[in-house]
Simulated scan of single mutants.
Amino acid sequence: MVGLGVVLLVLAVVAVVIGLVLFGNGAGAVPDRPMGDTTATRRGLSRIVWSDLFATMKTSIKGAVSSEAGQAQRKASLGAFIVLAGLILVVLAILSFLAALV
């Protein structure tokens, strides 16, 4: 169970980082090519408005598949959904660690 928890935790970290970059890119805080300029990406990630991220999580599926949404809104919605999935993976990893202790 500990091995499963470690794998889930690594996947959670990767999902949260990718989701934050996508959300920041859609929100206009992160540059279009995040791997091209890592310093600008780090600065952009620090400028993400967390209340907007959590508010977008509520309607992330609807915003990602909406035909009326622009490309930036779709990126932001998809990024918020991936961050939400990463947070769920963190909870599952914690439960896995707790199950290993029992």
Score class of each variant (00 low, 15 high):
93 A>F: 03
43 R>T: 11
10 V>M: 10
98 L>G: 06
48 I>Q: 04
59 T>N: 11
42 R>F: 15
30 V>D: 12
34 P>I: 11
11 L>N: 01
67 S>T: 12
10 V>H: 03
68 E>Y: 08
61 I>C: 00
61 I>P: 01
14 V>H: 00
54 F>H: 04
1 M>P: 15
71 Q>C: 00
66 S>R: 14
31 P>S: 15
79 G>T: 05
73 Q>W: 02
83 V>F: 07
9 L>W: 03
38 T>P: 11
47 R>F: 00
33 R>Y: 14
30 V>F: 08
41 T>M: 15
43 R>Y: 11
55 A>G: 06
73 Q>E: 15
98 L>H: 02
11 L>M: 10
68 E>D: 15
26 G>C: 04
91 V>Y: 02
49 V>W: 03
48 I>F: 06
42 R>H: 09
1 M>N: 13
25 N>D: 06
69 A>I: 00
85 A>C: 07
27 A>P: 08
99 A>H: 05
92 L>W: 06
87 L>W: 04
59 T>K: 07
83 V>I: 10
51 S>P: 00
32 D>Q: 15
6 V>S: 08
46 S>G: 10
23 F>C: 03
94 I>W: 09
42 R>M: 14
37 D>Q: 08
50 W>I: 06
70 G>D: 12
79 G>Y: 05
25 N>G: 09
45 L>K: 08
40 A>T: 06
53 L>S: 03
51 S>H: 07
61 I>F: 09
3 G>C: 08
35 M>T: 15
1 M>H: 14
33 R>A: 15
21 V>C: 05
44 G>H: 07
98 L>A: 10
46 S>L: 13
101 L>C: 00
52 D>V: 02
28 G>W: 12
